[in-house]
Amino acid sequence: MSINGNYFAGVDVGSLAAKSVILKDGEIFATGLVPSGVNSVESGLNALNLALESAGLKQEDLTYIVGTGYGRVSAPYANKAVTEITCHAKGANYLHPTVRTIIDMGGQDCKAIRIDQDGAVVDFAMNDKCAAGTGRFLEVMAGVFKVELKDLGAIALSATDTVPMSSTCTVFAESETISLVARGEKPENILNGIHHSIANRIAGLFSRVGIESDVFFSGGVAKNSGMKSAIEQALKVTIVKPEIDPQLIGALGAAVIARNFSKKEGLWAA
C-alpha cells in the first residue's frame, strides 16, 4: 500500500453516533461508525480509528482531517472544523451531482438544505431546539412500543391506517401515544401516524427553503424506510437511493472538503 499523502478523512461526531470516512484517490476507502459517548473527542477518535484499522492505516498517514457535527468544536485530531450543513451538501453532491435538495435527520436535529451543482449550500433551515422530528424523538417512540429503533419504519409501513398524531413535543407525543394505545389503536397505525406527523413537520421546513429535484435523505433516520416513505408522500418527491449508509454522508462530505482544503493549502496536488 503506497502511503503517498492521498488519504483524507472526515469525522462527524453527532449526538447519537460518531462516523468517519477515509478517501483514497477520490474514492471511499474505509468507514467507521460507533455510538457517541459523553466525551466527543473520544467518540470521534474511536470512529476514526475504526476506519484506520479497517484500512490498515495510521493517523499520521492521513494528509488532512476535517471534523464536523456537534463534536467539531472539540476535535484536536482535525486540521479544520466545518459545519455538518456544508458537509452533508458536499457528501450528497459527491455521490449524486444531480442532487439539489437534502433532508438530513440526525439524532438531535433536522435540516432542510438546498445546494447547487457544485455542492455549495444555497439555503438551509433547521428545526427549532425541541426534539420533534429527530432521531431522539423516534428513539423515545420505539421505547414506548418496546421495539427496536431499526424496526420502527418497517412496522409503520405495515399499517392499514394512519392514526393522526397532534403533538409534536416529544413528551406530549409520548403521553398521546400511550392514550392512543389505551384507546385500542393498533401500534402499527399509531407509528404510521407518528412518521407522517414528523414528515409534515419537515414539509414546514421546506416551505422556508423550497424543494428542487433530485432529493437526497441523509442522517441516521434515513435508514428508516417508514420515514422515507412518509417524507416522499408529504413532499411529493422521490428520494434518490444512497449507495452507502446515509448516516455516513456528513463524514463523507467532510473527507471531500479535507481533500479540497489540502489541495488549496498546497499539501496535495491531484
Partner: peptide
C-alpha cells in the same frame, strides 16, 4: 443559553455559505 450550540451551527453554516459563494 440552551440553544447556543444550535444557533452557532446555523450562523457558522451561513458564514461558510457566504465565504464559499
Amino acid at each position: 443559553g440552551s440553544d447556543y450550540e444550535a444557533m452557532k451551527t446555523r450562523v457558522e453554516a451561513f458564514v461558510e455559505m457566504i465565504k464559499i459563494k
